[in-house]
Simulated assay, not measured.
Amino acid sequence: MPHPWMPQALKADVGDHAPCDPEFPARAIAHITADREADAEAPLDLVPFGNLQGFFTGGGKGRAPHILWDPFTGAFAQFFPATSRSKALSDTAGGTRTNRAGKVVIQIEALFFPHCRVDGKVFARLVDTPCQGWDALHAWVSSWDVPDVWPMGPPTSLSRRTCPDDEWRSRGGWYAHAHVPENDHVDPGSWPAFVSRPPGPLPDEPRFEPFPGASFFRAGRRSPVIAEMHGRLVAEDCDRYTSGTGIDVWGPGDVRSYTAWQRKLGFEGGSADGVPGRFSWDRLAVPGV
């Protein structure tokens, strides 16, 4: 049985679950957040992941997808289980039930807009980004029997091509927001290629260290968990350590390095204080000990 909640995603359940229509085939809908308007001459900084997560759990609940995906860091937040409809599509009463028409209708919002700027580099298309985490996302969507096909063709430009109602009802697979009936959007413009997988069952999900609580991280605390955290911070280019010894003991280098990680996730001010919280810890994916 596939997981209703993507194992790699932060569970940010907004409630208001409602069933899909299982008489229709399984499908996935590809969106981009498109939350800023930029162009090649005037690029803009990417909006922090935490801002969009806060929007979809706050004032934007009525527009929330299943998954918010950061293709630059591989971070995920999930707002509805796969077994529920989400709300990211226009869905006219008495129409094609766009948010529900499928065994599942898994909707993904990639944190991206054309000509966004990240660490000084500008990205014109989603496929130009690192697409971190796409393999895990694709595997999870596929576990819900969403076929690796684009009935309207893969998105290659920001243009509208509406799927006929009869085809929408009869063909499963991946659809761009630009393809969905009753909607007027042109996104996502591009999407990463499907990940080839060997035949047979999917491997077990990797086990990550659960958040031990903020009080765990006190000066002098010695633990293999801290050593594993150290390794992950270094791997994420958040190495602010001045010594390579005592990596299993919580100290000032850990605070500096964890602050760098929090800032990389988009936290600012007192929210980037170097003390792990559940959200940032889950995103760091510290291997289990």
Results as ranks from 00 to 15, higher is better:
residue 47 V to M: 10
residue 206 P to T: 00
residue 35 D to T: 12
residue 21 D to S: 15
residue 189 G to A: 04
residue 173 G to E: 08
residue 156 T to I: 12
residue 228 E to A: 14
residue 98 T to W: 09
residue 67 I to C: 05
residue 119 D to R: 11
residue 254 D to L: 01
residue 7 P to S: 02
residue 280 S to A: 15
residue 15 G to L: 05
residue 260 A to W: 04
residue 92 T to M: 09
residue 196 S to V: 05
residue 260 A to N: 12
residue 20 C to V: 15
residue 275 V to H: 05
residue 253 G to W: 01
residue 110 A to D: 10
residue 203 P to M: 00
residue 220 G to F: 00
residue 134 W to Q: 03
residue 284 L to A: 14
residue 218 R to N: 04
residue 236 E to I: 04
residue 229 M to N: 07
residue 70 D to C: 02
residue 168 W to A: 08
residue 28 A to T: 10
residue 42 A to W: 11
residue 192 P to T: 03
residue 237 D to N: 14
residue 176 A to S: 12
residue 228 E to G: 07
residue 44 L to R: 14
residue 287 P to Y: 06
residue 285 A to Q: 12
residue 271 S to C: 12
residue 75 A to C: 10
residue 196 S to A: 11
residue 282 D to Y: 00
residue 265 L to T: 05
residue 185 H to C: 13
residue 141 V to A: 01
residue 145 D to T: 14
residue 276 P to K: 01
residue 26 A to L: 00
residue 94 G to W: 07
residue 115 H to Q: 12
residue 277 G to W: 00
residue 213 G to V: 00
residue 207 R to A: 13
residue 238 C to M: 05
residue 287 P to S: 11
residue 288 G to K: 14
residue 181 P to S: 01
residue 262 Q to G: 05
residue 147 P to N: 02
residue 122 V to F: 10
residue 52 L to M: 08
residue 227 A to P: 08
residue 222 R to S: 14
residue 91 D to M: 08
residue 85 R to H: 15
residue 216 F to P: 08
residue 122 V to M: 13
residue 278 R to K: 09
residue 123 F to Y: 15
residue 248 D to C: 11
residue 55 F to P: 04
residue 265 L to N: 06
residue 150 W to Y: 06
residue 81 P to A: 05
residue 258 Y to G: 09
residue 160 R to A: 07
residue 192 P to H: 04
residue 25 P to L: 02
residue 172 G to I: 11
residue 209 E to D: 09
residue 12 A to I: 05
residue 107 Q to T: 12
residue 16 D to S: 14
residue 160 R to S: 13
residue 201 P to Y: 00
residue 7 P to A: 02
residue 253 G to D: 07
residue 238 C to H: 08
residue 127 V to K: 10
residue 235 A to T: 12
residue 113 F to Q: 11
residue 242 T to L: 13
residue 113 F to T: 03
residue 129 T to Y: 11
residue 55 F to E: 03
residue 164 P to N: 01
residue 48 P to K: 01
residue 288 G to N: 14
residue 222 R to T: 14
residue 130 P to G: 03
residue 160 R to I: 07
residue 15 G to T: 10
residue 34 A to K: 12
residue 43 P to M: 02
residue 162 T to L: 10
residue 27 R to M: 11
residue 19 P to N: 06
residue 24 F to A: 09
residue 47 V to Y: 04
residue 266 G to Y: 05
residue 12 A to L: 13
residue 283 R to D: 01
residue 93 A to D: 15
